[in-house]
C-alpha cells in the first residue's frame, strides 16, 4: 500500500485541502473506490477505512492479483467533514452535482474535474454515497440506466438488491453518471446510513466490495458468496407519503415485509400528543427505504416499498 496526495488546494485560513488516496497492487487500473463527497458521509469514509485495513492485510499476504491495482479514496471533502457540514463550506455547493467538472471552472468544478481525472480509466468504480433525506435503506447497489449499465455485474457484490435508476436531469451531474459515461462500470453502494457509524452495515459493505473484487479477479480472497440480488427498477418502488405533519414514529424497519393495511407509522400532534394520522401500507411487499427524521412534513416520502416482495 502506498499513500498518495492526489489533489491539493491552497488554503487561506485553514490548512491545505487534500484528497488522499491509498493504492494497492500494481499494474492496470482495475478498481477505484470513492468515499465521501459530502462532509457528513461519515459512514462512507469509515467503510473506506475498514476496506483499506483489509486490503493492506491482503496485500501483505500477496492476495492482490498480478497486474491489478486498486485505489481507495476515503474522503474527498475534508473541509466539510472537519466542521460537520455536508457541502463545500464556502459556497455550500455539492461536489456530487458538479461532475464532470471543469478544469478551468469554479473551485468545486475544478475539484470535480480533478477527481474525474484521477479516477477515470478504471475498469470498475464504486462510489459509497448517501441519500439527501434522513432515512435508512436496505443495503443495495445502484446503477444509472445510461445504456452502459450492467446489472449482472452489480449482482456480483452479493448485496440483496440492485436498483436501476433512470437518470433524471438532476442526476446527470453526479459522479456515478459521469463515471459510467466515461467507460467505467460504475456502481453506487448504499448502506443503511451516512451521518453516523453503523459497524454491522459497514462490515457488510466491506465484505460486498471484497466479494466483488474477488469475483472480478482483482484480489484472491475467500468469503461468503452473499445474495443473488433482486434487480429492481426504481420506478417500481412504491412511495408512501405522510398524510399529516407532526412528530413521526416509524414502526417498520427496512427489510421487513408489510401487508396491505398494515399500520407502519404514526404521526403525532406536536402539542397534544394525539395521533393525527397513521401511515398505512397501500400494498404488500418489503420496506426498501424508511424515513428516520423525528418530525415529518405533510406529503413527505416516509417509506418506499418493493411491491409483492417478501423476506
Amino acid at each position: 500500500m502506498y499513500r498518495e496526495k492526489l489533489y491539493s488546494l491552497e488554503g487561506i485560513y485553514r490548512e491545505e485541502f487534500k484528497i488522499t488516496g491509498f493504492r494497492f497492487g500494481h499494474g492496470e487500473n482495475s478498481a477505484c473506490i470513492v468515499g465521501s463527497l459530502r462532509g457528513n458521509e461519515y459512514q462512507q469514509t469509515y467503510i473506506c477505512s475498514q476496506l483499506i485495513r483489509e486490503l493492506k492485510k491482503l496485500e501483505e499476504h500477496g492476495q492482490i492479483a498480478g497486474n491489478k491495482s486498486i485505489l481507495v479514496i476515503p474522503c474527498l471533502n475534508q473541509y466539510a467533514t472537519n466542521i460537520d457540514r455536508r457541502f463545500w463550506p464556502l459556497d455550500d455547493s455539492d461536489i456530487n452535482r458538479k461532475f464532470p467538472g471543469h478544469i478551468a471552472g469554479d473551485t468545486t468544478q475544478q475539484i470535480a474535474a480533478n477527481i474525474m481525472e484521477i479516477i477515470k480509466g478504471y475498469s470498475y468504480g464504486i462510489h459509497l454515497t448517501s441519500f439527501y433525506m434522513p432515512g435508512k435503506f436496505v443495503p443495495h447497489v445502484r446503477m444509472m440506466e445510461t445504456g452502459f449499465q450492467n446489472p449482472s455485474l452489480a449482482n456480483l457484490f452479493g448485496l440483496p438488491f440492485v436498483v436501476i435508476r433512470k437518470p433524471k436531469p438532476m442526476d446527470t451531474t453526479t459522479l456515478n453518471y459521469n463515471w459510467q459515461m466515461g467507460g467505467t462500470s460504475a456502481f453506487s453502494l448504499y448502506t443503511n446510513c451516512s451521518d453516523y457509524i453503523d459497524d454491522v452495515s459497514a462490515k457488510q459493505a466491506v465484505a460486498s466490495i471484497l466479494r466483488f473484487l474477488t469475483r472480478m479477479g482483482i484480489i484472491k480472497y475467500n468469503n461468503h458468496s452473499g445474495y443473488i440480488a433482486e434487480v429492481i427498477d426504481e420506478d417500481n418502488l412504491v412511495p408512501i407519503l405522510s398524510g399529516a405533519a407532526g412528530f413521526y414514529k416509524r414502526l417498520f424497519e427496512p427489510g421487513r415485509t408489510v401487508y396491505r393495511g398494515d399500520v407502519i407509522g404514526e404521526i403525532i400532534d406536536t402539542y397534544s400528543g394525539e395521533i393525527l394520522d397513521r401511515v398505512i401500507s397501500p400494498t404488500e411487499g418489503m420496506i426498501f427505504f424508511a424515513y428516520t427524521g423525528p418530525t415529518v412534513m405533510e406529503d413527505a416520502v416516509v417509506y418506499k416499498v418493493i411491491r409483492r416482495l417478501h423476506e
Partner: peptide, 10 residues
C-alpha cells in the same frame, strides 16, 4: 401548501 410539524404551513 404543505403542513409543517409545528404550527405553520409551507
Amino acid at each position: 401548501s404543505l403542513q409543517m410539524p409545528v404550527e405553520e404551513r409551507l
